[in-house]
Design a binder for these strands. Structure first.
Lengths: 232, 232
DNA sequence: TTAATATTATGTTTTACGGCACAAAAATAG
DNA sequence: CTATTTTTGTGCCGTAAAACATAATATTAA
């Protein structure tokens, strides 16, 4: 039963951000909102683009990536429903530094970022909302830097697996990660080569820490993975 | 001519943050403000502490550090006058994750963070001020992760040197970094061992990219350092 | 002053991990 | 269905950088 995405249907599902607005503000935003759907691996925005929109992920999964030295891609963070993203560069008058891509079929609602910023300037609650998001992201970014620079391969992969569990949760069986990603994505998330992601994941599988079936990954020994992550 | 730090003398030097406040707000903050001086390497706050203050660096230099795996320290960012710091954890109800230490003799003005947060909730301009700081820091943090994970030692050290120039500037001669730090600090900033920081700095010196005299570092070939940084 | 400690410097060894080559399997196209 | 491309899986090799060892200086303390 597929329905065409309709803004008015989606508005009730955009989290508590809208509830922080005055009725007038909410009405203007709703009027200016647009809905977009993306296919697997489709680009949402690209590093270098001028930011015009505030993005809200309604359904699907999104990765925020950075091209590093010599085309080496890093997955910097991931977005789950219902989260807002893509606002940081606009706040500081920069173009996008990171790119956003859909992991899987995805629906996004966009608002004009200038309109949102104008509202932030006259609505401290709204400002507070985005401050908290930024503060959370900054905390995670600092954490991530230490993980990626100081932990060894096993620690980094264990970290990535637990991070995916935290971010997107498990399927009904209580074990299987509900995101299926390629070994390459897994490598980009844990800052290693694809070969090493494959190798290390196999090692985890033979140690019965995880069970792997294609792109399906079951987390069998969360505690032991957490320990590996802590030890480096 | 040494004068005891006096709050009323310092208030005019706390940047434009105070100008965003109402007269009443500014008066309350001024009343509650405290001044603190720190000696070289003295701890300002420590990871795990409960955040109670907003810190404003009036004079001196401060490093924000993180203890990683097995006591390995990273310098995550540095603070220059007049910058505010130490507010992120309070915004998200966490304890400090990072520690702050004085690089050199330092004067700091503190405000009760609860009072500041209350003002943020009713003053969108103030909120906007901190949002911008967070957005800038987040951008730098993402950038830094790529640098530290993907660049080789020479690139990372070149990066650190240019970063120090950006952050604290040069002395009157137009070459000498105005911050003098130990090789260990330099290593912690560029995520390498002290030995490698020493070795690589010596290499830069023999290539006439920098001139080193103890802890005094002259940047001779900024362009070439920038190139080394870009190349990885 | 001498002693003790911290910092800087350099050489040697070890190793984690990237790079590469090449199958095997799976997905996609024609 | 077969052909082509993409993804996954393994093995081997080279090397960047950590680990370790040990001086040679500074710096601080006594």
């Amino acid at each position: 039963m597929k329905k065409a995405p309709n803004i008015n249907d989606l508005l009730p599902h955009l989290g508590r951000m809208l509830s922080l607005l005055t009725d007038a503000q909410r009405a203007s935003l709703a009027k200016a909102a647009t809905v977009h759907t993306y296919r697997k691996n489709e680009l949402i925005y690209s590093a270098g683009d001028h930011p015009e929109k505030l993005y809200c992920l309604v359904s699907g999964k999104v990765k925020i990536c950075r091209e590093g030295v010599g085309l080496r891609t890093q997955i910097v963070r991931v977005i789950r429903p219902v989260e807002y993203f893509g606002y940081r560069p606009a706040f500081v008058g920069e173009n996008f530094v990171l790119s956003a891509l859909a992991f899987e079929p995805t629906v996004i609602v966009c608002f004009p970022i200038d309109m949102v910023m104008a509202m932030i300037h006259e609505n401290a609650s709204l400002a507070w909302f985005f401050m908290q998001r930024l503060a959370e992201d900054l905390g995670r970014a600092d954490e991530r830097t230490v993980t990626l620079t100081q932990k060894h391969i096993r620690g980094r992969l264990a970290d990535a697996l637990l991070f995916l569990k935290e971010s997107y949760g498990l399927e009904e069986d209580g074990y299987t990660l509900s995101i299926y990603l390629s070994r390459e994505d897994l490598a980009n998330l844990s800052n290693m080569t694809t070969s090493n992601a494959i190798r290390t994941l196999s090692a985890f599988a033979s140690e019965r820490l995880v069970a792997v079936d294609g792109r399906k990954i079951k987390i069998l020994e969360e505690e032991k993975l957490a320990k590996i992550s802590r030890m480096g």
